[in-house]
Write a protein that binds this DNA or RNA. Structure first.
Lengths: 328, 328
DNA sequence: CGAGCGCGTGAACATTTGATCAAAACTCGA
DNA sequence: TCGAGTTTTGATCAAATGTTCACGCGCTCG
């Protein structure tokens, strides 16, 4: 008889409610609102993207309890969080971000200070954060922002994203990640604003960082010569731009001098050190970081977890058997 | 040596999180957990059913704004809530329940008392209620429970379900809906506990009831002779077992005397009177109930709404023409 | 001890949803 | 006014999901 709603695009909320609360199909909504089915599909995706539709799972079940406790036995960890493994890089990143967000939320306390490292893995976390886990949380960058690393999100934006997601306050470290020269870096370090933020980071309660191995945001953005220099000195990985060798000892090098951020020793001062990383290329670095206590909370995926467990069992130094695939 | 999880049925929370938070497909979850895909589908449905998975649409957009405002112009209503129309009875009931739940939640205030009528439509509401709309709400049955009406949920259970859903307290009316004889009904009515609850209902702030027309829970459960008697006296519908004629006046009859519950006049004492009904068989009753002010908040579906608008245009004096369309 | 009954299971099928791609509309600048 | 690039759109196809049905297992009751 009558057309209830004509052509003008109906609000997302209406579409979303017809779908999720009233159980109409995309096609039925399309007919009702005078849209194409595809359009409805897209509007619904949009509604989820912007958060009009929120799907909550009321459960604190861990996904891979077995792997998590095995990791806790094999390495000196406070906690391990393991998520599913994916072939597809985009899905893997998304999923790991979700696990890491949950881990971070679980470790947040009111008025805590969280130091945030610059890393691709860490950058996937904020979108999964929800306010409410804790109040008055402060997010502080662990290093300077961007300069020297091109397309990467800056650590400043990262801290802001964390604050926006979890609710809280973000601090700014007004310096580049890498200065052109050691001397320039020193000038930055002497800036009062930089010092203040770095001090805040040193005294943080929680630290969240990625781990660089044969791949990683930093490694991929260093010049070949810089990289070769660190490798030459035995570096197997880095945390927030600080390279370490197979014994977990800091590897001093020129990059180190140009970097504005916490030292490995300073990182260790943070009581809760969350490391987020996955993939075969990071196994060796992860194994060192874990066994040497550089990080004491691990977020990774199941296949990396299995690799770490295999390595812990074998405990062979360098030249590792990198291919241990398994799902089940 | 690495077996993440075998065969034992994994917790619902894990399945749900793999699906909703990590975006695995049913098949991937099945492979991971050693289940069949179908089983995963069923577990996920179960998770939604029991509320482990909650989908919230953050929006207060109304679905049929045009129809709702047209109804408000055509009838003396405080509010109208219109939901989508379905062929399928089960879907229709579910959907109307969702709209009604939203309506009730919107009208709840802290410490309000809500009188709950016994009706199939009303019975679909509680499952859609969420705690939090208001605190310390009291739900009181409007009539006695069950006795005389067979398979129907009792009004007592209904009040309990409301209280469980919205959070709050339920009262009991310890009496049957229909006594065998008027004399027996009188005995019940004199019971102090019955009186207390009925008084509570009379002084309720909000009333939620179905409307019986040519169909309805009560009508379908009355004996043929009882029904014929009411029809003979001009009854066109009922609210909570009280029949009214085309002028909205109470139709006294034997059923009336045997029923334990509020009278029409008492119902009118409640300031907010929500009527929930849909379907052509209820159009006439609805039209009377609306125009005579027996109810002043309407919850219905779009096709019934259109029917009501057409009827209002046809016989009401200066009503707005029914061609009200286009919400957006 | 066997037949029946009911529940849980998965296979096959139907429906719904999502992804890809090419055409259309629209923007912006010359 | 035209055109190159960008965005928006819907058709087509592939994947994922939901439904139905028949089977098998275990239980109860005769």
């Amino acid at each position: 008889m009558e057309r209830t709603n004509d052509h003008r695009q109906p609000p997302l909320g209406k579409i979303a409610r017809l779908y999720y609360e009233h159980g109409l199909t995309h096609q039925e909504i399309a007919d009702l609102c005078g849209l194409s089915r595809i359009k409805v599909t897209r509007l619904l995706a949009e509604a989820r993207r912007v958060g009009i539709v929120e799907i909550t799972v009321h459960s604190d079940d861990h996904l891979f309890v077995g792997l998590e406790s095995a990791l806790g036995r094999a390495y000196p960890l406070r906690q391990a969080w393991v998520g599913p493994t994916f072939e597809d890089e985009a899905r893997a990143a998304h999923s790991l971000g979700a696990v890491a967000a949950e881990c971070v939320s679980a470790l947040l306390e009111d008025r805590a200070t969280v130091a945030v490292g610059l890393s691709a893995s860490v950058a996937t976390i904020p979108r999964h954060l929800r306010p409410g886990a804790a109040r008055d949380v402060n997010f502080v960058p662990l290093t300077g922002s961007g300069g020297g690393i091109s397309r990467a999100a800056s650590s400043h934006e990262l801290a802001l994203a964390f604050a926006a997601g979890a609710g809280g306050h973000a601090y700014h470290l007004p310096a580049p990640l890498l200065a052109r020269t050691p001397q320039a870096a020193q000038v930055w370090r002497e800036d009062p604003a930089v010092q203040e933020t770095l001090e805040r980071a040193v005294s943080a309660d929680v630290l969240v960082a990625g781990i660089g191995g044969r791949t990683g945001l930093l490694v991929e953005n260093l010049s070949a010569s810089d990289l070769a220099a660190t490798r030459g000195r035995g570096a197997v990985g880095d945390i927030s731009g600080r390279f370490f060798d197979a014994n977990g000892a800091a590897v001093p090098c020129e990059v180190d001098d140009r970097l504005i951020g916490l030292s490995l020793a300073q990182l260790r001062a943070v009581p809760v050190r969350i490391g987020v990383a996955r993939g075969a290329a990071k196994l060796q670095a992860l194994r060192v970081a874990l066994s040497q206590g550089l990080i004491n909370v691990l977020v990774t995926d199941s296949s990396t977890a299995e690799g770490l467990l295999a390595a812990a069992g074998a405990d062979a130094p360098a030249g590792a058997p990198a291919s241990a695939e398994a799902s089940s």
